Amino acid sequence: MHPTTPDGRYFVVRQQLWRCSNPSLAPAEREALVADLMAARRAVKKAKRTDDAQALKSARSRVNEAKVALGERGPVWWDDGSPDYNRFKVTNTPYAQWYEQLPDEGSSPA
């Protein structure tokens, strides 16, 4: 799949960091939140298909709520004071050297 930073905070897609879910969530809680997220994403798709602006706004809000609850958005889930690099280009972060050493994705052109 996608490479995950050594500290487990981010995964990389197309040279961009994306925050991972909070690993301290209980498995049942994580499953419920992922189910909520998937339902909300389906609602976004349906609202777009039916051109329903109010339903789209509501569904996007539900997506955001689920992502915040999972720890992928909002306050960071770690407590060591490290900054959040979510959505940063990996080469512009302290993870650049780690990324460049990866066999496949790290050798992608910038």
Rank of each mutant, 00 (worst) to 15 (best):
S108F: 14
G8T: 09
S108I: 08
G81Y: 00
A35Q: 10
E72T: 08
A26R: 08
S107C: 07
P3T: 04
T5F: 03
K57Q: 11
T50V: 13
T5W: 00
D80G: 03
D79F: 08
D36I: 00
R42D: 13
R42N: 12
P109S: 13
R14F: 11
W18P: 00
A59W: 01
R14A: 15
S82V: 06
Y10D: 08
P23I: 05
Q16K: 15
D80L: 00
V68Q: 11
S24Q: 10
L33V: 00
S61I: 02
E105C: 09
D79Y: 03
V44D: 03
G74P: 01
R42K: 12
A35E: 07
Y99K: 04
Q97E: 15
E31H: 09
W18T: 09
K89Q: 12
P103S: 08
N22P: 03
V12S: 03
A40M: 06
L56G: 09
V44L: 07
L25R: 01
S82Y: 05
D84T: 02
G71P: 03
V68F: 08
V90K: 04
A26W: 04
R87M: 14
H2G: 07
R73E: 14
W18A: 08
V44F: 03
V44N: 05
Q54S: 13
T93W: 10
N92K: 12
E100S: 15
L70D: 04
E100A: 14
P27T: 07
T4I: 15
T50M: 13
V13E: 13
R14L: 14
E65T: 12
L33N: 00
L70Y: 03
K46H: 11
S82T: 13
F88Q: 10
R49S: 14
A35S: 10
Q97L: 12
K89F: 12
F11W: 11
A28E: 14
C20I: 05
K45W: 08
A69W: 01
L37W: 00
V34K: 07
Y95S: 03
E31T: 10
S21K: 09
D104W: 10
K45R: 14
R41W: 00
E72A: 03
D80F: 06
Q54D: 14
R42S: 11
S107Q: 15
C20L: 11
